[in-house]
Nucleic acid binder design. Structure first.
Lengths: 189, 189
DNA sequence: GGGGGTGGTCAACGCCTGTTGACTTAGATG
DNA sequence: CATCTAAGTCAACAGGCGTTGACCACCCCC
């Protein structure tokens, strides 16, 4: 992270803007709103912290921009029939390829951060719950959407929480085998 | 909260100590480690912030004391056969009587707060995962414990997250009816 | 009734955070 | 080559945080 010293970054406003957005997204997916510092993001990009405030106005608006930028549609573009399998795999073997869950992780980490709460709620409803509910369809779609989202986030939390209790490879497979049909059943209704 | 002005609290070290512990537990169950301020807790109890540092040494040690004080055994003292029902009820209609889930909520909120991470992990493993796994018993108990804990926390997060999307009373019942057998099946194995 | 020790307060420190305005510099344009 | 705008830096501020040492005040005991 931060190759600023070796590569001084060409003077390109649009590129640095998206670089900031990218770095911020990664940070916000790993830590909560308050924990992510402007100076951290700036260091990742190789830029002065002041520039971020300059481009985005404030930390709050930067956060909003991150949420607007990446939406939660990644969950829904795979095959319906393999949803449970895919998600279970991401959950158990993540966060190696957390791209699918990144958006959900950002919500998760910063839910309950007073300054970010309203932004998160709005983004969660408009950017995730509503489209996901529609994608699900069928009976009690809103409820199933909430339960699925809850499980995805909850297992992700549990991963952080039980850091020391590593599972053996076969246990991972068993956990996956437990989660996949559970999630698939919720998708199918 | 904070009736300090009207009732100046008798001079009793032990009582104020537990009062601080109680107030801190409530705060930590609602907000993350960093968000909870010594001054907030002090205001709740009606006491000077300095006193807390004096009694517990530091914020970190206070947090540890809170986790040591209340353990997660509330989940396991009811009837096994009604576990799913009870938890589903708490999840859907909470946080009115969050006493059962309080301990899990503290973990949830402060998981991923660097300064609290190690404390949380240790407490989670020793105070929850291990006894709960033992209580569960049967095949793949560690995995089932993780999944159950994950679901409980995840649904709790989802409640905060989709603050605007309130469910109708009958939807609440349907969600409960969806969750209860799911959890019960995980308990039964 | 005057010590002494404990329960509690007060003011202040050092640190870290987001933000701002003035400044410097690169890079295209004439 | 000179110039002028946009890209980026720098130093500093105000506010909040946890923590500390010096300071009152109550209450028990002799």
């Amino acid at each position: 992270m931060g190759f600023a010293a070796v590569c001084p970054r060409p003077r390109n406003a649009a590129a640095t803007r998206t670089a900031i957005l990218d770095a911020a997204a990664k940070r916000f997916a790993a830590e909560s709103y308050e924990q992510v510092g402007m100076r951290d993001i700036a260091r990742d990009v190789g830029v002065d912290p002041a520039l971020i405030s300059r481009y985005f106005g404030s930390k709050e608006e930067l956060f909003r921009a991150v949420l607007d930028d990446c939406d939660g549609d990644e969950l829904m573009d795979g095959d319906r029939a393999t949803f449970g399998e895919r998600m279970a795999d991401d959950l158990v073997y993540g966060p190696a390829k957390d791209e699918d869950l990144a958006w959900l992780l950002i919500m998760l980490k910063s839910a309950g951060s007073p300054k970010a709460a309203e932004i998160v709620q709005q983004a969660a409803i408009e950017g995730f719950y509503q489209p996901f509910t529609e994608w699900l369809g069928g009976e009690d779609a809103p409820i199933r959407a909430r339960v699925i989202a809850g499980i995805l986030m909850g297992i992700a939390v549990g991963r952080d929480l039980s850091g020391g209790m590593k599972l053996s490879p076969e246990e991972c497979e068993r956990m996956k085998a437990l989660l996949a049909p559970m999630l698939q059943q919720l998708v199918d209704g």
